[in-house]
Design a protein around this nucleic acid. Structure first.
Lengths: 344, 344
DNA sequence: TTGAAAGCGCTAACAC
DNA sequence: GTGTTAGCGCTTTCAA
């Protein structure tokens, strides 16, 4: 194994100079730098990670805590992991994979042993058992998603309020005057789950702004529930010409139910969904949609973490909300003049 | 931070004793051990990973090299990653995520810097550019899949020969006497790709053993090609009553083509596929299938790596082939007596 | 069965 | 702008 003293000898300098050339933590004359860099290259020197970590109390590794069991959203998760790894490499860091299942012990372990310099924690729940630990840690962390009590934590996610608004804006622009948000199961709203409420709030306020008739309807799981929801909805709002679906597993069943009710998409009904692009593209009718920007979330979360690492926790905002991007597909079209909404 | 000397003092022993209690590398009197373990617990001691790595030249981390871009097989990949991480934890190791895209440089980096003790490399190609490097490395590695030249490497994968055989055995048992293997695109066979050839070999030899009429047909990509392949096949083998599909993307189109040709599954045609369970379950007709045993591959690959680490490279076989497990679903049924094969 | 002490390879004062 | 050197916290001889 070639070590720093070998490089130093080869370049005719001291070990510290080699170290400083590598870290850039003090100025080095151009010619010395050249010589050292050349020696590093010809000797194929790579600093010993453990030694470096011990001496500098920096491992240059960050933990990515993610659910590895969950069967849903895999493409999104992978995209996310990929962008975290890629972004980390950009900052000369590696990524240690920690499973959600290890829970707080996992965090403790990688943290107490100084294995990692910081944490990116995915899949944050409203009431997340790890939050207190994360708060007490002296290591910086970035959370994907917002817990109920987010003050003092660095969180990042899609801006769901803006997302709800964007959906309505899109539909309003197409002339729709009566819209519904088909959302999560009732208990999700009851629980006060953040993203569901925020989407609904954005949806509602944008509708008000546009002077549009709007309603929010929870959708219980299952094909039957979807069918029933649609029937009731159409009965109650005969003028309905557009819906926003914020309930991934229900998207297919809902589309089917509308079709069965004689509503063609997009001729009779425009549909916007909040779901992964893959799902939207492969629906019976390709669905206009807004997806969680997984790659961007990953990249930004690493940037936030690196900033905290380099410039302290005050250097980043508590919350960063990524703007939604709506991809128009075949499921949204201008409202047909004959499908006027009934007076609200 | 609590360090080993703190524990030593607290327990009234020397640092080395604490170290030995932790590593078990020399015998400790029961009462000393008790005392030390108690001190460790009350102080919440966790060895510093870097210091340990430096002193012992073992990082207790292994690299998982996987493709993070690929859009296919995600569930399988995730399952695999999950089982690698879980198995690694079993051996008190952590997992560093390295992307396929980093290629040989990535391997060099984590390897030369002593970041990891060994490597699990997924998605090995027949002609894999990383093989020479992997060979020259002094670190142990385990490859998922078999390259063209596998001698001296530790490789693990599903036993594709046995898989081809198992499919035929299943069909023969159901009374089928004329079967076809609908395989990969022609160029895959031309390239001599290992798993494709091995499956075909197993298929053919089992058919011979059973005295069954068998043919192997490559399937080009695309819906049209599938349709054409089916038409030609049925024309040429009017007595065909069962097929094995070893071509994931073609499965759907092939099923459709058979249906269009008037062959109902399983009444007129039994179908076995080699694909992820998820795909098999969600096909038009749930398809009897053999899946790559991702979780098992992951677990076993870690076991192999740990064995090489602990007992040397000679302690493990070069090749480990996992036995196929066929899951019967609705797509296979006894041959109908009236659909007798024509004399071959 | 246990302790003392010499490093492991690097970084970061401190000195010039 | 560069060199000297004292650790970083642990493991592992060597010695008892």
């Amino acid at each position: 194994m070639v070590k720093i003293t070998d490089v130093a000898r080869h370049a005719g300098v001291s070990p510290s100079t080699v170290s400083y050339v590598l870290s850039g933590k003090r100025s080095i004359s151009a010619e010395t730098r050249q010589r050292v860099e050349q020696s590093i290259r010809t000797l194929g020197y790579r600093p010993h990670a453990g030694a470096r970590a011990l001496a500098s109390s920096r491992s240059n590794v960050l933990a990515l805590v993610m659910p590895l069991r969950s069967g849903i959203h895999l493409p999104v998760q992978m995209q996310f992991a990929a962008s975290v790894v890629t972004a980390a490499r950009t900052y000369d860091h590696d990524v240690l994979l920690v499973t959600q299942e290890e829970g707080e012990d996992g965090l403790r372990r990688v943290t107490d042993s100084a294995l990692v310099d910081g944490l990116v924690v995915m899949d944050i729940q409203m009431q997340d058992a790890r939050i207190p630990l994360l708060r007490s840690l002296h290591l910086p962390s970035v959370l994907i998603g917002f817990p109920a009590e987010a003050a003092g934590l660095t969180c990042i996610d899609l801006d769901f309020t803006a997302t709800g608004e964007a959906c309505v804006d899109h539909l309003a622009q197409l002339g729709h005057r009566c819209v519904a948000l088909l959302g999560s199961p009732p208990e999700v709203y009851a629980r006060g789950t953040g993203f569901a409420r925020r989407t609904a709030a954005g949806f509602t306020s944008a509708a008000r702004r546009h002077g549009i008739n709007a309603t929010v309807v929870p959708v219980a799981p299952g094909r039957a529930a979807a069918q029933e929801t649609v029937e009731r909805l159409l009965h109650r709002y005969p003028g309905l010409s557009a819906v926003v679906v914020h309930n991934e597993p229900a998207l297919g069943p809902l589309l089917e139910a509308f079709q069965r009710a004689g509503m063609r998409v997009p001729e009779d009904l425009s549909v916007v969904a909040l779901c992964p692009d893959e799902l939207a593209e492969n629906a019976v009718v390709p669905v206009s949609s807004i997806a969680i920007p997984a790659a961007e979330v990953g990249e930004r979360s690493v940037e936030l973490l690196m900033s905290k690492l380099a410039r302290g926790p005050e250097s980043v905002p508590d919350a960063t909300l990524l703007p939604p991007r709506l991809t128009p597909r075949a499921s949204t079209a201008p409202r047909r003049p004959d499908s006027l909404p009934t007076a609200s």
